[in-house]
Amino acid sequence: MNCDESRELMLDILYGEELNSRTCFQFFQHIDACSECSADYGELLQTREVLQSWHVEDSQATAVPEPVPGRSARLRWIREVQWWPALTKVAAGFLILVGLLSILQNLGYLGGPRVSVSEQQLADMVQDMIVANQAEERIMIGRALIRWKDDADLQRNQDMQEVYDYLVTLEERYANNLEENNQYLRTLATK
């Protein structure tokens, strides 16, 4: 046995964990031969000795109340439960129950008047739904067209404004050039 193996076993030996006798023998053989492991083991033994002198007066472990006889552990939560969250859960459960009952009644499972729909009525309802959808689609398309027209108008106005500004600039430049030319001609004439 080498030192690493000895250290691995040290605590098991120290606390009498289950080991076979051969392993124990090899361990102590190593301890006899190795001063380092022997010192290590001795230190642990000494520490254990000190620890074992620490006693707790466990007779003071009283006042642990026993549970009330005859009451099931499974039912004890009822006494421990906090009431407000429990109440909200009960209320939610009640509402769900009422909803379910109402659905069942509408379907005729609870003896009330069952709502029956004929084939013609069903066809009418589907027709109405299709018409309603078509109307909605038309409205949506109309709105999209109006938006597109507004956008186009806006764009056209912007373009026209740009062209107008450009023409104004050209006119101003032309007027300036004309004035400069006139001045030049006047200068030549006076010479």
Binding site: D58, V64, E66, P67, P69, G70, A73, L75
Partner: peptide, 20 residues
């Protein structure tokens, strides 16, 4: 677990010193 609280009392008695 079947609702016999006295049995849990016995368990308590058995373990309370060690736990304490």
């Amino acid at each position: 677990l079947d609702g016999d609280g006295a049995c849990f009392g016995e368990l308590t008695q058995r373990w309370q010193r060690r736990i304490f």
